[in-house]
Structure formats: C-alpha cells, structure tokens
Amino acid sequence: MSYFDDNRRARVDELLTLYPRVRSAMLPLLHLVQEQDGYLTDEGMGEVARLTNTTIAEVRGTASFYDMFHLEPVGRYVVGICTNIACMLVGGDELLEHATRTLGCPVGGTSEDGLFTLEETECLADCDIAPVVQINHRYVRTTTPDTFDQVAEDLRAGRRGEEIPPHGTLIRVRRSGGLRADHDEIIAERATAKSAREARSSQESK
C-alpha cells in the first residue's frame, strides 16, 4: 500500500536518515513525489506529511512556497524562459512571446496536446547564454527563435530523451549511502581533543 514505488522507496528511506530532524527531508521528498507523479498529487503530499510528521496543510503550504513544485498537472515538458534583467536586455521577452506561438500555449498554460507548459521564469543564473531557456530544469542553451523552434521540434519528435528527462526528475545521481560518521562519538572525541590542545597551548605559552 506504499505510495512510493520500490526504487524510490529506498531513496526515501535513505533521505529520512540524512537529517537530524525528519522534517528537513521535506523538499527532497516533494521532489521525489514530483518525479514519480509529474506534479504534487494529494496522495503524494499525504505521504510526505506522514513521513515528515506534519499535516497535509503544512506540506501543501510549504510546497506552494516554491516555484518548482506544481500542485496541478503540467505538460510533459515544462519550458521556462527567463525575462529577468540580463535576458530582458537581450531579447528575453521577445523569445517568450515567440514561444507562446511555437508551443501553442499562453504563459502559465499547457498546450492542447499536453506536451508543453510554458513559464516565465526569474533569472536562471546562466546569463552569458541569454535569453536563457530551461526545459524540465535542463538548460538547452539556445538563444534565438530559430534554435528554440528546433528544440521544440526535437521534443515533439521524441528526440533529446537523454538530455531532457521527464518533468520532475531532478537528480539522477543517487547518493551512495547514508551518513557514515558516528556523530555522537565525534562530539565526545572533539571535546577531549580540544581540551588537550588547550592544555598544550597554555603550557607552550608559559
């Protein structure tokens, strides 16, 4: 009856051990929900509430603070185009406007074929290749209307699957294990080592 599938279940179990308090796993867990369902489903948020010992209202309240989380279904590809200052100065608004036509969806909307959701984003920190475009949080590093159209065409044709995973997939590299250091032991050791050092240095200074 578990909400997460087996592969993610293991990652969830590990995540919960990485932090001194379980609620800290909130954001990574929500990313996993989005990876599994494409957006934050009620069931997914319910599961995160259970795992982090919070209420669904808190999970939803937390999730809705962050732009990357979608509480409603989105297209297969979430296309983000930056119009912030650096991109604006070199044509970000124009590219966004162009994209509404190419993708067939208004800003904030999803195309009829369910393929694209278009978003205006704030600065994506890649400003030397402006205007900046991200698709499913992968930089496509394309700046002109023509190259943008080419990318859209590729996606429609099912190409670029390697480069651009399904929406929600954030980190494809798994952490290679939980915490390794024995933290209680360390704290004790440190205290002893420190007092020894202090003793020595006070002796030296004499």
Partner: peptide, 27 residues
Amino acid sequence: ASEVAGEAQIDFAGRGDLIEVAPSPVE
C-alpha cells in the same frame, strides 16, 4: 492552529502578496 491547538490544519500557502491561509484539500 499549530502552536496552541497543536493541529496545523491550516497554514499559509503561496508566497509574496499571493500568500493565503489554506486548509488541506483533503483534511
């Protein structure tokens, strides 16, 4: 709700000037 009653069934949702008090859709 969270501090006194200990039942955070309502919480803020959203950010900035779109922030709103919201219950969970299911609880």
